[in-house]
């Protein structure tokens, strides 16, 4: 199945659960081959259902990473998958976006379905203060002495407290 057909199948499979489904392409090289990216939004409740559905399309969906964004009242989590891989020019980058309210940022782990998501989920827990239900305990990146500081947040819980502006020290001759 080529990338275009795969993206359409993805749309068909997920249409009941996602919103803002968007297929975008970019052209590259002399032959102007198209690179496919698919974007969709989903309610946090359905994240796991969507991931399960990906298994209907591919025996092992490849989870690349999750990224995040402090959107004020919410934290956006984006799960990036590379699907339909191991075929020439057929890969589709699928980004699934969900929003967690800052006053209750809870999401269910997908590590029971995709064990390769563990480091990424722990990173989001450490850097955004998200409660990932079912995820193994323990930090991967941040020392436990930094508990309560979530460096990727833009609010009072962010990294400002631990930032050392060395250039300012130089300016004062300290």
């Amino acid at each position: 199945m080529d990338a275009e057909a795969f993206a359409e199948r993805l749309k068909e499979l997920l249409k009941d659960k996602v919103t803002n489904f968007k297929i975008s392409t970019t052209e590259h090289g002399k032959e102007k081959r198209k690179a496919y990216r698919v974007w969709a939004d989903v309610d946090t409740l359905y994240i796991k259902d969507i991931v399960k559905k990906l298994f209907e399309l591919q025996e092992y969906p490849h989870f690349s990473v999750s990224s995040g964004y402090d959107a004020g009242a919410d934290i956006e989590i984006l799960l990036h998958f590379t699907l339909n891989y191991a075929k020439p020019h057929a890969l589709v980058v699928f980004t699934l976006r969900t929003r967690l309210p800052k006053n209750n940022p809870v999401i269910e782990t997908i590590t029971d379905l995709i064990p390769g998501a563990e480091i990424s989920e722990k990173e989001k827990r450490e850097f955004f203060g998200i409660d990932v239900k079912g995820l193994a305990p323990g930090n991967v990146f941040l020392d436990e002495s930094l508990a309560g500081i979530y460096p990727w947040r833009k609010d009072e819980k962010g990294a400002q407290k631990i930032v050392k502006n060395l250039h300012e020290s130089d300016k004062d001759g300290k």
Binding site: E31, A35, T82, Y85, A86, L91
Partner: peptide, 19 residues
């Protein structure tokens, strides 16, 4: 044994022309 290579799978830069 996984034949996954972004240069083969995803046509970025000139890799799409180079097969």
């Amino acid at each position: 044994g996984i034949k996954k290579d972004t240069r083969q799978d995803f046509p970025y830069a000139a890799y799409g022309d180079l097969n």
